[in-house]
């Protein structure tokens, strides 16, 4: 399966990458090689293999429902490029 230029640009767009021409060519090639590799794996018969949807053996890891105040807010707020009247400020977004 080859990735079309259109699909490549669409993916780059979704993950917010702005690429120069050389990077685009290189990454597109890499991506297609990766897909070829996966194509090869597709030849293996996995009908009887249960899909692994979680890599650890951990199950049921929970915390109790207790609210505490960590008070790291000032640090968090200071991390933001723009903070005003208690709010984080981002470029204007309209639905």
């Amino acid at each position: 399966m080859k990735i079309t230029k259109e699909r490549f640009n669409n993916i780059a767009d979704m993950v917010k990458l702005s690429l120069i021409k050389e990077e685009e060519t290189k990454l597109n090639k890499d991506l297609n090689q990766l897909l070829d590799f996966i194509e090869t794996m597709n030849e293996i018969d996995t009908d009887d293999v249960v899909p692994m949807d979680y890599v650890h053996s951990l199950r049921n890891v929970y915390r109790e429902d207790i609210a505490t105040d960590l008070s790291t807010k000032e640090e968090e707020h200071a991390n933001a490029p723009d903070f005003m009247d208690g709010y984080y400020v981002v470029p204007r977004i309209l639905e």
Partner: peptide
């Protein structure tokens, strides 16, 4: 509450923060 009073690195999506599921939700 006042805006951004109930936040921490986890619900602010800071890199490396590890979310743990609240059992009562389940």
């Amino acid at each position: 509450e006042k805006p951004n009073a109930n936040t921490c690195p986890i619900c602010m999506g800071m890199p490396g923060a590890l979310p743990i599921l609240n059992k009562k939700v389940v």
